[in-house]
Design a protein around this nucleic acid. Structure first.
Length: 570
RNA sequence: GCGCCCGUAGCUCAGCGGAUUAGAGUAUUGGCCUCCGAAGCCAAGGGUCGUGGGUUCGAAUCCCGCCGGGCGCGCCA
């Protein structure tokens, strides 16, 4: 059987076609009521149709109810227990007990694969972090890493073929600034001195790079290429090459420690090297939407909803950054990604229209037929770090901001990852260090992990009791003794897991997952405190243990999507 | 000034393709370990959903104004 929700939608649709053929095309929306007294599912289709059918909603609901009850009576297996009309015309459904607990069996049978859809979906590229190699990763990058990684996992688990990608802007003036900063350090200068370049990076890491450069050390970037420092202060190209490799390596170390792995690293410099930037300019001109003004080449991005036209080629002959950005996205399209999602800070919001416009112009002249909404964006706002009631702004390491490494050292990877995805991306994030460190109070990470560990302990005891191994015996357990309201509520939540994953993936809203896990853990803790699991009656005992084992499995599956550990002991 | 986002309990936040009585955590107060892990559970109090209009049988949710906050508004990235 399909999941209960879609099955129910099918039933309602068929009843609707029978009773009100004129309204057969109506969307059937099945929701899970917050209030358990309203049943397991509810449908508002009667309210929606009242106007169209010119009949009171309760009357429509009543006709549908009759048809549904007839169908249920004729069915071979029992699915519904009751169909009730309530309020203005809601149809509330109560599932048969066997329907309710059916989800428990699927969870135990599928194990780690529960919630996973067949990998038949589109190819999608998720670009995130994309930090310039000019300094250590900061907490904002951490938020991006957590959001991007979890979103990728969500898309993947629901069948999309995901590529996680990191883009380096390694061709701009910022890299030049980095090289000059290192060079200044090599000359023995320090921030604050008169000769120190005004725009230079002041963090301690610049001195570290200079020291290693002078010592002619070798570093390996994320792609593994070793770079050895020449040690010559005056050779700026060499300084730059070493500094970039050094910082790429540092970022790689941080990302690995954070549990984030990328499939592809793209370099802005390679877009120039491969002639992709020049090709984009050529195609923009061919689209007929460019013009020369003040010695520069402009693209009429206002044709695509931008609030002003944008410069493509500056009067000095170089290109603005958005050109390689467009070239990069043309590349994504050409690699076969019909969906691309970029995770970025809201401070880059204004670039969206520009990049999409640029893609449209190129698409028009090449006939690529890139959709106007390509690529998709998940924008997140800034992270503010609080400790002891005050904002933490300065990190020794970076000089002017708190690094991801600082954060992970302070509170641990699990807490950082869980926290950073636990809010809507567009909300401003207040990261409270004291809160993430608390081991007993309002710390949702421990709350969820604790539920997992508790169940593991329970399963270990049950195994001793029954002298059986693992969950294999539980898959066959008779679940009919699970008759309590708490038990069916838990089972219902387990069966809602795949739906929740779909919603989170569709809405590009990974925070949904953390809320689900907290609610599931909460429901388990309540159940655990109210009822004894390991009871003498072995049928009841096995059924309850099977339910708990299913809860554990879903907690573990969900945590793994978040990249958070599911400990057996804490 | 213009554009986008946000304003929900003391605090931190869900809910916002309208729909049955607005939720969670925390903080406060009071209970629960001779019993499967108290990093837990139960209960109470706490909200004109920023504000004023509008659409609707029905609005925290959709539309408009205003107030307050964030981000952006370069031939920077």
């Amino acid at each position: 059987m399909t999941d209960p929700k879609s099955h129910l939608a099918g039933l309602v649709r068929s009843a609707l076609e029978h009773v009100f053929p004129d309204a057969a095309g109506t969307d059937i929306l099945i929701e899970r009521p917050r209030d358990a007294t309203h049943g397991d599912f509810a449908c508002t289709v009667a309210l929606q149709l009242a106007k169209q059918l010119k009949r009171p909603p309760r009357q429509i609901a009543e006709s549908l109810r009759t048809a549904l009850v007839d169908r249920e009576a004729a069915a071979t297996t029992r699915f519904l227990d009751a169909v009730e009309i309530a309020g203005a015309g809601f149809i509330n459904f109560r599932l048969a007990p066997e329907t309710r607990v059916a989800g428990v069996r699927s969870v135990l049978q599928l194990g780690d694969a529960y919630g996973r859809a067949a990998a038949e979906g589109d190819k999608v590229v998720v670009e995130f972090v994309s930090a310039n190699p000019t300094g250590p990763l900061h907490v904002g990058h951490g938020r991006q890493a957590a959001l991007g990684d979890t979103l990728s996992a969500l898309l993947e688990v629901r069948g999309r073929r995901v590529t996680r990608e990191f883009y380096y802007n390694d061709a701009g003036v910022q890299i030049q600034t980095l090289a000059l900063s290192v060079q200044a350090r090599l000359r023995g200068l320090q921030p604050g001195e008169v000769a120190w370049p005004e725009s230079a990076y002041n963090g301690d890491y610049v001195r570290d790079i200079a020291d290693d450069y002078a010592a002619r050390k070798t570093v390996a970037a994320a792609d593994g290429t070793p770079v050895t420092a020449g040690g010559d202060t005056e050779n700026l190209d060499d300084v730059r090459r070493f500094a970039v490799a050094y910082l790429r390596h540092e970022q790689d170390v941080d990302l690995r420690a954070f549990g984030t792995a990328f499939d592809v690293f793209s370099l802005e410099s390679s877009l120039y090297a491969e002639g992709r930037v020049a090709a984009v300019v050529k195609n923009m001109i061919a689209s007929g939407r460019t013009y020369e003004k003040d010695g520069a080449l402009w693209l009429r991005t206002t044709d695509y909803g931008d609030d002003k036209d944008r410069v493509v080629r500056k009067s000095d002959g170089s290109y603005t950054y958005f050109v390689p950005d467009v070239a990069y996205h043309i590349g994504k399209w050409e690699r076969g990604f019909r969906h691309a999602i970029n995770v970025q800070g809201t401070d880059h919001h204004s670039t969206i229209t520009r990049v999409r416009g640029g893609l449209q112009a190129v698409s028009e002249s090449t006939g690529a037929e890139i959709p106007t909404g390509y690529p998709d964006y998940v924008l997140h706002s800034m992270v503010k770090v609080m400790r002891g009631g005050e904002e933490v702004k300065i990190s020794k390491r970076a000089g002017s901001y708190v690094t991801l490494r600082d954060l992970v050292e302070w509170v641990g990877r699990d807490a950082v990852r869980f926290f950073l995805v636990s809010r809507r991306a567009d909300s401003e994030f207040l990261f409270d260090i004291d809160l993430a460190l608390s081991k007993s109070e309002e710390n949702p990470v421990y709350y969820v992990q604790y539920a997992h560990a508790r169940i593991c302990s329970l399963l270990a005891q049950w195994t001793l009791l029954r002298q059986q191994s693992g969950t294999s015996a539980l898959r066959a357990a008779d679940l009919s003794p699970l008759a309590l309201a708490r038990e069916s509520a838990l089972a219902q939540r387990l069966s809602a897991y795949p739906e929740m994953l779909d919603d989170a993936a569709r809405e590009l809203a990974p925070h949904t997952l953390t809320f689900f896990l907290r609610d599931l853990a909460s429901e388990f803790h309540s159940y655990y405190n109210a009822e004894r699991i390991l009871v003498d009656d072995s049928r009841l005992c096995d059924a309850r243990v099977a339910l708990c084992a299913a809860v554990r499995q879903v907690l573990a599956n969900g945590l793994s999507l978040l990249g958070v550990s599911a400990p057996e002991k804490m």
